[in-house]
Design a protein around this nucleic acid. Structure first.
Lengths: 349, 349
DNA sequence: ATGAAAGCGCTAACAA
DNA sequence: TTGTTAGCGCTTTCAT
């Protein structure tokens, strides 16, 4: 087995700096600096400098530069958890868009815990990121207020907080699409796996869903709503609790696809099938939703990440931030395509 | 709508540095520096300095410190894609473990493309990370060799490359577990969704699977193996190609759970059910595998990430790197619990 | 256009 | 223990 460090010692250890190049080129370091920040070949002098830089494998030290310029060209991204593919998709778009503008995105998981949110935000500040994108805001604004007091430019994405501008989905609309669909199928005994009260995203979906049903004459009382986390295990447990408490539910809206798949597992364990026995609707249209034939609400996560990044870049340039709500779209699949519930409604009302 | 930048100007704009504290405390900056890197209250003098630092909300500038010390206390992590929950889990463990050692993990997606791998590695070098963890190595060592030439300490995780030490699963064993299971069920016409030839992980799984079957008298010819990507859509397409080419397959091993779920979707579309009609085995035991009753090979991803980080910390301390292969475990669920294939074997051979 | 010189925030060698 | 001094790699005035 080879030691990865052996190469290190075989190299010339002196890292190549701007001064190395200057000596080789017989010019002053400041000349090199100037030449290197123009495009590769403006005149013949700088062309020589670029050639030497390439030859020596010069890597500019962005930390040193930022010490001088005051800008690290880095932005911090705080997400609740990258194992949630939705957050990963948002980060992916942020990373790509940031790179287009010459920024590097640095991400951290906060697990939706205030202590971690602060800790990781402070680490970002220590790294002197130019700005922050928060994808893990809570409706209770303690965390976001705290960040704002630090005076660093930031953008909210995916979840909102108070009246601040943010880049999110129109969650109310998404919930309404799901609610209207379930009502159209004729269901009257409907359950909701409602997510977490601190998240504007999941609570907005629940509100929209319940409102759409109410407008169509179907009530979803509190006992038919069950809070849950955002993963499959949590969805399964929540579904079990709901079915134990309220027998005879014929349709379920889970505010998250993972939760919905976990719920499908709970149904299976009781000999019920999503689609055939219980209509099941998820939210997000994650990649496996199509494979598992899950009806869900498609959401443009990548666009959200991209737009949020543009907004932050704008903010860094001194422009102000706009509020954006993107429209979701209902994807009807087999999980809600089963037969009508036993007691069919005679009309939509 | 509020402008996020307004707070910035209401603050005192002078960022608080070590010198601000020194002036306030009436001591020399270097005294502050020394006091601050000891624990909060060694003596009464440093206690005063700590108090002032807290009061002023002092955030050390790690970039400035690293310029002096030569260590950024940051490590770079290159993954192929964080939307793959396996990579996200590995990163999560890396991030957590790195933090325990006082390092910040900076991650980047490379999409398994050499150009991106180089580009992102170079960005990491520009940020002067102390070391690199590569979770996206290819068997063709072009990329890893290139990194090694840069002389930066690095560790391979999840995928290996040549004879270099790495922290991986025992993929051959994992494949064998799946192969033995399928053979025990009596299947003789078996398909493999075999992943990507450039990945030691997926190719190792395929090899182990095929070897285990061969030892039990079942041949899996090349035409019964279909390469695929690592997501559900790719799994579905690959399964379709395989079923079109080789009718009558009674069992399928997909080297990745997402691929397996995509394959299940393809089966459904043809009126076949995983478990009842075709035995299906995946790999990784991602969270939704349990919910969807997918038989799979459980792999300790978090341990891998944690161990890899320890190894890198070791390497940074000048110690050499060990090769580690972690053992996976077969999780039998309903997707492979269906009836025996039509033509039942009279014996295991 | 290029060179000289200063300085970003911090740490470390040395001196007192 | 504390102050002094120098310098990490880079950019940016200012002068030439």
């Amino acid at each position: 087995m080879q030691d990865v460090r052996e190469v290190e010692s075989s190299d010339k250890r002196r890292p190549v700096t701007i001064r190395t190049i200057a000596e080789r080129a017989g010019v002053h370091p400041s000349t090199v600096s100037r030449a290197l920040r123009r495009s590769p070949a403006s005149d013949d002098a700088s062309e020589r400098i670029w050639a030497i830089a390439r030859e020596l494998g010069y890597q500019p030290d962005v930390a040193a530069a930022s010490l001088r310029t005051g800008s690290t060209r880095a932005i911090g991204v705080l997400v609740h958890n990258l194992t949630d593919v939705v957050q990963a998709l948002i980060f992916e778009a942020i990373e790509r868009t940031a790179l287009e503008f010459g920024y590097q995105a640095i991400v951290a998981n906060t697990y939706d815990e205030l202590s971690e949110q602060r800790r990781r935000a402070e680490l970002m500040l220590s790294r002197r990121v130019d700005g922050l994108i928060l994808a893990d805001a809570h409706l209770d604004c303690a965390y976001v207020d705290w960040v704002q007091e630090r005076g660093i430019p930031f953008v909210l994405v995916s979840r909102r907080c108070g009246e601040r501008p943010a880049v999110t989905l129109d969650e109310q609309l998404g919930g309404r699409l799901a609610g209207a669909h379930v009502a159209d199928l004729g269901h009257t005994r409907v359950g909701v796996l409602s997510g977490m009260a601190f998240s504007s995203a999941t609570s907005g979906r629940t509100e929209g869903f319940v409102a759409a049903l109410r407008e169509r004459g179907v009530d979803v009382p509190a006992e038919q709503r069950e809070p849950c986390g955002l993963d499959a295990a949590s969805g399964r447990e929540a579904m079990d609790r709901l079915l134990d408490r309220v027998p005879g539910i014929t349709a379920v809206f889970a505010v998250n696809d993972f939760t919905a798949l976990g719920a499908a597992g709970a149904l299976n364990a009781r000999g019920l099938r999503a689609g055939a026995d219980v209509a099941l609707v998820g939210y997000n249209d994650i990649p496996i939703a199509a494979a598992t034939q899950l009806t869900t609400v498609r959401s443009p996560h990548q666009s959200m990440g991209s737009i949020a990044t543009h907004q932050l870049v704008d903010a860094l340039a001194g422009r102000s931030i706009q509020d954006v709500r993107l429209a979701p779209e209902l994807m009807i699949r087999e999980s809600s395509a089963g037969p009508r519930p036993v007691a069919v409604q005679t009309s939509g009302r």
